[in-house]
Design a protein around this nucleic acid. Structure first.
Lengths: 235, 235
DNA sequence: CGTGTAATTGAGGATGATCAACCAAGGTGG
DNA sequence: CCACCTTGGTTGATCATCCTCAATTACACG
């Protein structure tokens, strides 16, 4: 079983798990061929038939799930990073579950569904590579659900804690709000509340964590002092 | 790649994908050994180290995710059915992501993590079986998030539509409420609202669908007439 | 036939969504 | 270089939804 695929391992085909499983080192051919896509490029749309499987080499991809059909752009569901696949659901169903858009410049290696199936049959460790990637992303990618998972402030704190060390560029407010299951306005207020507590210092493009321990405590039990609502007096 | 594993395929080892991949038919040995568990049995608790991987042969298992640590019982996350695995996250991390409890009488086949790893190395199609199962459950298991995915009534309607044909015994109200990201009280009111519309006829242990087309329409766009709130007059 | 648990109902309040206005930061073209 | 526009983000006010807590009813089970 492969270890976690981090960005650095993936950029070179000789160190990429897919390349290794394809036997690149001993002159094997990798069915996944690289391609570049610009920021904002739409990779697939929910409901479309799956024709290609993509492997993310570099960059980030936003996966959105469209709950209602009329809206083209669903709510953000997850951010996929290098080392994970897109479109593997094609192995068990015919159409895409969700839409995907490049968040920045991305490099993807693509293969047709048939090529992937052939690869799975031919290469002994191929399935292990896919299994590894799927397990990793299903472990990472546990989206927050509404209030059941705590208040807006708490979900934000939990996200900040989890993101924590990996300093990958912050997603835009709109995207982050979607990932956290809230509206941009609510996210703005939640950021404000944490900032009022001195726990974080939100900049326009990055959020600096000032008090990690308090942040963790808020993420755990949801208590925070900052900017309580005005309480209406009652007779 | 395996096809969808339905209950009937799984009960006999000769038709079970795990058994087949272990070469049961040609006298191979399957590392997964069956065990029965009674209703309510706790299979594992979030945070515990993963020591065994379980394969569900029959019955249903409730997977709960504990968001806060003090609460032993987290919010219901998904219901796993025959053909899916528990504890596969052990392949990529050391401890359980979530807790699991048998919803009724269940039969599980278990193997230690080491046995699973050895099995993956020894058996050519083992990884494909696991990959298939993981993809299936990640396709099925897309929990609803709070209001972002629509109102309580809409989420309930969507769940009823999706469950639809497969008449597996209804989960208890508390469990169902958790799966839908709402409180039991809210679920009760949502059921009442749909019943007032004549769309469903909720019994204590089962929910009869009276008007499937209207139910689908509510699931799609959230409009429903039943029991509108009293609207306060404003000057 | 009591008793405990699950499900329901009701009232009130907290929270987040909505809508509209506003602000700040980049472009773009004169 | 500056008016202009566009886009994304913030703020404020109001409202709908859902949560909370408590009381009550229905049901299963001894």
């Amino acid at each position: 079983m492969q270890r976690t695929s981090t960005e650095c391992e993936v950029t070179s085909c000789r160190r990429c798990p897919v390349g290794v499983a394809s036997g690149i080192v001993e002159r094997g051919r990798c069915p996944f061929v690289p391609r570049r896509r610009g920021a904002g490029a739409v990779l697939h749309v929910a409901g479309d038939p799956v024709d290609r499987v993509w492997f993310i080499k570099s960059g980030e991809v936003l996966v959105t799930r469209s709950t209602d059909e009329e809206r083209v752009e669903g709510t953000p569901w997850a951010i996929r990073r290098p080392g994970s696949f897109l479109g593997l659901e094609g192995l068990v169903r015919s159409d895409h579950l969700d839409s995907a858009r490049a968040l920045g410049e991305v490099t993807l290696c693509g293969a047709s569904l048939d090529e992937v199936r052939a690869w799975l049959d031919a290469r002994r460790t191929a399935a292990q590579v896919l299994l590894d990637a799927v397990l990793h992303s299903s472990v990472r990618e546990r989206p927050f659900r509404g209030n059941v998972d705590g208040s807006a402030v708490r979900r934000l704190a939990a996200w900040l804690v989890e993101r924590g060390s990996r300093d990958s560029g912050q997603p835009s407010r709109k995207v982050l709000a979607g990932l956290l299951g809230m509206r941009p306005e609510t996210l703005s207020r939640a950021l404000h509340a944490l900032a009022a507590d001195g726990v974080i210092a939100p900049g326009r493009r990055s959020i600096e964590i000032r008090d990690p321990s308090r942040l963790r405590s808020i993420a755990r039990n949801g208590r925070h002092s900052g900017a309580p609502r005005v309480r209406v007096e009652r007779p």
